[in-house]
Design a protein around this nucleic acid. Sequence first.
DNA 1: CCCTGGTCCCAACTT
DNA 2: GGGACCAGGG
Length: 843
Amino acid sequence: MSFLSQLNPRQREAVETVEGPLLILAGAGSGKTRVITYRIAHLIENLGVMPESILAMTFTNKAALEMVERVDKLVGGLSIAKPLISTFHSFCVRVLRRDIEALRIPSSIPGRPPIGITKQFVIYDEADQQQTVKGVMRRLGIDDKQTTPRSVAARISWAKNHMLDPQEVYLQSADPKTERVAQIYAEYKKELAKANALDFDDLLLEAVRLLKAVPTVRDYYTRRYEYILVDEYQDTNRPQYELMRLLAGSRHNVCAVGDEDQSIYSWRGADIRNILEFENDFPEAKIVRLEENYRSTQNILQAASAVVANNRKRKGKTLWTARQGGTKVGYYEAPDGENEALFAADYVSRYLREAADQGENARAAVLYRTNAQSRLFEEAMRRYQLKYSVVGGFSFYERAEIKDMISYLKVIHNPDDSTALLRVINTPVRGIGKTTVDTLEHLALETGSSLWGAVGEAIRRQLLPPRALAAVKSFKTLIDDARVMLAGTYAQRLEETSAEGATEAPAAVIVDDQIAFDPTALEAEDGGQATPVEAGRLHDSRPEAGATTAALLKFLIDRTGYIKQLEEEDTPEAYSRIENLRELVNAAMDSRDRGETLDQFLDHAALVSETDSYDERAQLTLMTLHAAKGLEFSLVFLCGLEEGLFPHSRTFLEPDDIEEERRLCYVGMTRAMDTLVLTRAVYRRRYGTDLPEASVPSRFLEEVPAELVDELGTSRRRASRTRASAPGARSHYAYEDEDQSAVWRVRTPQQSSRYSGPKYNSIQNVAEFFASRGKKFDLAKFKPEEPTGKMGFRPGQKVRHPKYGEGTVFQREGEGEEAKITVQFPRFGLKKLVEKYAQLEKA
DNA sequence: CCCTGGTCCCAACTT
DNA sequence: GGGACCAGGG
């Protein structure tokens, strides 16, 4: 009971109202997470509710994780059973992995397996969705310049978030474009079904469909979860809302926590009506308002409230704080983006230093509207030698090399995943080009099979030219081998779990591309070619059967020569990619330590976002406003307050969208505990190359009452201050010079000989480099050696080409037959030729 | 028929 | 800064 005394009366009411529907309207900083976690603790500790009958759903893994930790702290060690605290999407995956096959319908052909998604479904991310849409559009012959796959995918997602199927989209369409979207949508659905795949939106939709359609399944979950909590309720979309209703069953023990002023996800289908109309759906609902803000000073809170007060669509509430006064809201107008970032770096570094001097552990954040803005800030922070962590931007799992390996795993797990297969069939290049892939796609279409089916078919019927056929065969062998390894894992697990030891581990066999665990399956199939699992049978680099995901990854990296190829590239980028791959193997090992199987590992990879990598201990964090939701910092920099950037230009047309931008601004401002600084760049470069454009101050700036604002000086004053406080940071123009010299530093002669790759093969670069050092680029330095036979041409040598005539060898890369030679031809300029093919002769 | 390199176009937020 | 696409070369 003791912890309840730490709550104010309103919070306590929210915590102690445990029966029946409850809506908690929790203003920013009003102790929302605290209420949720205390409520869970109260249920378990004071009311003796079984932890496993409590379900809490959040939007981000980050929020879920934080809640788990805080609940653990309150009731830790009480029991082994824990409440389920998870994101909507993870929860749905859990439900679907257990029960989705209840939705399958019997095949009309006797003896055939039922139709529908199986438990082994794969999850398509946004990139997979776009790829699939693109493929569908190509097949339908729809021009992808006018209607981009990207926009179509977005519209399909929109439809799904509003629970519209293709027919409904078609019926509601008022223009040919929407009709086409409906048509693509229908095909897209078929494509996913064929691949046994669900996209992010499907995870919610299918879970809802399952609970609606199958009473036994629904009963299982409603009986199991007696207490349901929904966090960030203002951001729930239709499917999430339905899910909540279904899970609440007739008990209606549902507690939703939200703040309509912080609804920032309408573009993802969040329906603000869910919160505004909660009372209609649950007439017996109790509503508790939390209006005391424990986070910010009065100045900050007043400024933020003044901004959001300009919105029409809100319930309206009055937040108050006991922290009277406080520092005024800072405003700084930078001449350009670079300067804005440097100002932030300068300010933050002094702020953190002063806090450290006083023994305080202050934390700061730089918040921006778009991820693209992060680069300038990162550069500035590095220049000030400030340690920072960036949330978002390019996610680890979005890196090309990681996606490649994940796609391999997906194919191994489910070869019918054509999108994944397409990604890796020629990665790294193994001689399966566009034409071959086209042939395979046609074949798949003809036979109604997946791409993987077409691979087998093409090999069986020898439908490809010899070279391509060999390449396709080697690819198939690779996947088959890996699948046998995986089957070994299953076999081993079966062995481990069968307590009686009497049965031997079932041999895994491949029968017509299907992995079967029961050897008798061999007899059942007529004439299917079987490959028994037998050590050493398949390939030399095959580790023994019983492989973990990590072993599988190592095998793939080894057999495909992926890392080897990167090593040969020998560039810093290549080594960073290798590092990433190592990190992936580590992630796989962690996954094994958690007791996960391959499919669980893939689920994890599909559902984590970079937001989850937020490091609480970092003193300085850079992230988007969206990612900052739910967090708090002593110092907040809110940057890029310019019309077109924030509010974003895409929101200008719809008044509702502008209101959402304003809520976003409110969210950002209310993250600040002690100090809030708003900045704007007078000139901003929008796309790197273009000239900087003059900006108009954001309308949100004008909405902050002037008496709460402290102007932090002009850019001229700042420039001198920066000069004084940051050694080596004279002005941002000086930085550009420094950058130049840094670039040149990389190109020292020693380095360039190490990196013989394409990066430094431009003759102009080399010549310029020498010129910049006041040296002449002297060809004579490269002493030509007498070539043996026709091969081995050296720089400076005269050669003859059948097409280009006579020329002078300029540069040589690599040795032997693979050597590439750059030749200067008087009439054709520089040409890079492969010695083996170029038919060069000594002139 | 495949691969490489250069060019063009794009860039909002996230599960 | 990055990815998609195309032309040119073997």
